[in-house]
Design a protein around this nucleic acid. Structure first.
Length: 419
DNA sequence: TCTGGGGTCCTAGGACCC
DNA sequence: TCTGGGGTCCTAGGACCC
């Protein structure tokens, strides 16, 4: 049996652990740059303001409706996620972390084992040890377990649900768009073809579906039928790319500032590479700009460039030395830039990547030892305690985080106070 | 004025090979 | 007048997930 543990309103729940007075209120966590709503408390959900709603559109409702907005605090959420995962690992080593707030667990117990009790125990332990409420579903396949956890959250008081052997009645009640893997596009097309419920999808003709849609949907159908079609290798696999991309707090017109953002993002993505013990063979750098209306209307757009490093590396200085000369190639004077990003690729060991015939040698006098030392300092004294000068000093472009909560678990000055 | 960030996989079509 | 069949690789775009 496969279980799916899904944290309820994860980011909001994390904030509530350290700010109990938020419990019961209309709380929403905002995306980076305070762009839009990403996580909502149950009370906030009742207002029918969907995830993705831009903050500036609902800012004015803050006072009249008593809304609480919080900037996202990924250091806190990542740490809380690790805590939840480590509780789960006490129950089984067969764990596939699927996202920051979700994981599949595998249990190979006897057929009539009481999975309901097991699920309750998991839920209780996570709640008690981390303060995070969860919805837990058990079933024979990942897709069904996922559906089970949704039912657990929405339709049970216990927060757990075990799919019965014959799930026809449940699938009949499930809109096809609620199935994991059926997104809005496919849902629309299925509806047009008269397939409205999960049961209808489960009973559809497979070759026909394969022809009309894709092998992805066929796999989903097999899973609904109780036949595992998502491979274990697809989960918990090593990452293939690692990126850092950001909208700017204010638009950038100056090339030097744009260059700073690339240095900054390359630095933090490279730090992640080193954390994972990986190296990249190259990176894609991109710039995106806003549309222009004056003197002539020009659409929004951007440019990107792929840079090969010549040899795999995770040395920030080497990486920036390789990227910097390429930046003018994708920069246009006079544009108002809104976003940039660095995406490392070629992370998998043994991946075959077409190298350049004559790679330019990368020259830097910053050794790996120096980079490692900076990592040690930053781990102890906080991100950017030391950083490369190329990433700027004034940094007017950094993202807005006006309503940031404390780093309760990852910084000494963020510890909660007990009175 | 103003809408995030980090991922994965699949498919169709173009270009090329013999 | 008029040209086959069997492949591979790459890329852009689409779709999905959280």
């Amino acid at each position: 049996m496969i279980g799916l543990i899904d944290c309820n309103n994860f980011y909001v729940s994390c904030e509530c652990v350290f700010n109990p007075h938020l419990i019961g209120r209309r709380v929403a966590v905002l995306t980076n740059n305070d762009g839009c709503v990403v996580s909502r408390s149950p009370e906030f959900k009742k207002l029918n303001i969907p995830v993705g709603t831009p903050y500036f559109k609902i800012k004015d409702l803050e006072k009249p409706l008593g809304l609480v907005f919080i900037s996202s605090n990924y250091e806190l959420y990542a740490d809380m996620s690790n805590r939840v995962m480590s509780v789960l690992r006490q129950f089984t080593p067969h764990l596939e972390q699927y996202s920051i707030d979700e994981a599949f667990v595998h249990f190979n117990l006897s057929k009539d084992y009481d999975y309901e009790s097991l699920a309750k125990e998991l839920r209780e332990r996570i709640l008690q040890w981390t303060g995070i409420p969860t919805g837990i579903g058990f079933a024979s396949t990942r897709t069904l377990a996922k559906l089970g956890s949704e039912i657990a959250k929405k339709k049970t008081k216990t927060g757990v649900f075990v799919m019965p052997q014959h799930a026809e009645n449940i699938l009949r009640e499930t809109p096809v768009g609620d199935i994991w893997g059926v997104g809005p596009r496919v849902e629309k097309r299925l509806m047009a073809l008269g397939i409205r419920t999960a049961l209808q999808l489960a009973e559809a003709d497979l070759p026909w579906l394969q022809k009309k849609f894709s092998v992805c949907l066929v796999r989903t159908v097999l899973e609904l039928q109780g036949q595992s079609a998502t491979a274990a290798e697809d989960f918990g696999h090593p990452m293939k790319t690692a990126a850092c991309t950001r909208m700017f707090g204010t638009p950038i017109v100056d090339f030097e500032e744009l260059r700073e953002t690339v240095a900054d993002y390359a630095e933090s993505a490279a730090a992640r590479l080193r954390e994972m013990g990986k190296q990249a063979v190259g990176a894609c750098v991109f710039f995106l700009y806003y549309p222009e209306y004056y003197p002539v209307a020009l659409p929004e757009g951007g440019a990107e460039i792929n840079v090969m490093f010549g040899h795999p590396t995770n040395n920030t200085a080497e990486i920036f030395a390789a990227l910097a000369p390429n930046l003018p190639k994708i920069f246009q004077q006079g544009r108002r830039y809104k976003k940039s990003g660095v995406i490392f690729f070629g992370l998998e060991n043994g991946t075959l990547i077409q190298p350049e015939l004559f790679p330019a040698p990368i020259r830097t006098n910053v050794s790996d030892r120096v980079v490692e030392t900076l990592d040690i300092i930053n781990r102890q004294f906080g991100r950017r305690a030391v950083h490369c000068l190329a990433s700027g000093l004034a940094r007017p472009w950094t993202m807005r985080r006006e309503k940031l909560s404390s780093r309760y678990t990852t910084a000494w000055d963020g510890l909660p106070l007990a009175r």
